[in-house]
């Protein structure tokens, strides 16, 4: 099928349908993982019989599971994710007010990770086998093993409590004071970015080594092309797709780690929201956050595919 980029997007969207169905079903069935009667669990220890009956009705526990699922999905598609069991606030509104903090954090960490990881990978690949290469690969191993939230605590101790360069906790709205928001998000983003730095450095290194060792690069060398031109014009161009794909996959992990980083820095994002709600059994909120984040991840991966197809016509042609 040769419909170019739009055709490829259409095909990918179609492939996403079953993935979406599974993901939404997992989110929906969370309520069923609760031991005992979910309505009683949600209502809490001191709920009256009427309250339990009411919750049973709100959730539709009195109907067959599949019927409930489609009912729930229908509401979710219309943006009705229910209400918080504690504040009675609309879950969607709650999430939308907090999502920008988390997205800013994740994007910031991604940019930092790329800005550091890609050059490190290039350095290691072009100086393969040297001490510098070994140092970079060792630092990369540390980067995946370090607990991000611990690094966050250390950064707070050093740069907020010690030098007082950065605020220790809190966040500022990106829409009201963009620069201040970035300033507040700097330490958490640094703490969050280590995994991206490490993974990008490793992958760029090995992908670049593979390209640089290939036949056509050898031909270019034989033709007398300088190593700088080879690296920038041919090497990196072929590694770009790898970088983009890896960066896309990292978004998933960044949202994971953000849950804990937000607790360390008291950032009112969705990560903090889901852990607080999970502790307090505020189930509609837990489900809502899980649903929104899985959608964000799925759409990010779609975006990466589209970008790859736009830059590399072979990708679009191969689907």
């Amino acid at each position: 099928m040769m419909y170019g980029v739009p055709g490829m997007v259409a095909q990918r969207l179609l492939q996403l349908v079953p993935v979406m169905i599974v993901a939404t079903f997992v989110v929906f069935s969370l309520v069923y993982m609760m031991p005992g009667d979910p309505a009683m669990m949600i209502a809490g220890d001191y709920a009256t019989a009427e309250r339990i009956a009411e919750i049973r009705h709100i959730y539709g526990f009195d109907r067959p599971m599949l019927v409930q699922y489609f009912f729930w999905l229908g509401n979710a598609v219309q943006g009705d994710l229910g209400h918080s069991l504690f504040s009675n606030e609309s879950v969607l509104r709650l999430i939308l007010s907090r999502l920008p903090h988390t997205v800013l954090l994740v994007l910031y960490a991604l940019v930092l990770g790329a800005a550091l990881g890609v050059p490190l990978g290039i350095l290691a690949a072009t100086r393969q086998g040297t001490t510098l290469d070994k140092v970079i690969t060792s630092v990369a191993s540390l980067g995946v093993a370090v607990p991000n939230f611990w690094l966050g605590i250390i950064l707070v101790t050093l740069f907020s409590l010690g030098y007082r360069w950065f605020p220790a906790t809190g966040a500022v709205s990106l829409f009201e004071k963009p620069l201040e928001a970035l300033y507040y998000a700097t330490l958490p983003a640094v703490a969050l970015s280590t995994g991206v730095v490490a993974v990008l450095a490793r992958q760029v290194r090995s992908a670049l080594l593979e390209v640089l060792g290939s036949q056509y690069i050898r031909t270019l060398r034989a033709k007398g092309l300088g190593s700088g031109a080879i690296l920038w014009k041919h090497g990196l161009r072929n590694v770009a797709a790898t970088m983009l794909t890896i960066a896309g996959l990292q978004v998933n992990r960044l949202f994971s780690s953000a849950v804990i980083i937000e607790a360390v820095f008291a950032i009112p994002g969705v990560g903090n929201l889901i852990s607080y709600s999970a502790l307090n059994k505020d189930f509609p909120v837990v489900q809502g956050v899980a649903l929104v984040l899985v959608l964000v991840v799925i759409l990010t991966n779609l975006l990466v595919d589209v970008l790859n197809a736009t830059f590399d016509p072979r990708v679009a042609a191969s689907t």
């Binding site: 993935v19 992990r253 960044l254 899980a290 984040l293 799925i298 991966n301």
Partner: peptide, 25 residues
Amino acid sequence: SRIIDGVLAFPPLVLAVAVTGALGI
């Protein structure tokens, strides 16, 4: 494979927090 893809789409820790909330801390 579609089921695998669907569960893989979740940020792992987000899923873990949600499931822990359901099963009980």
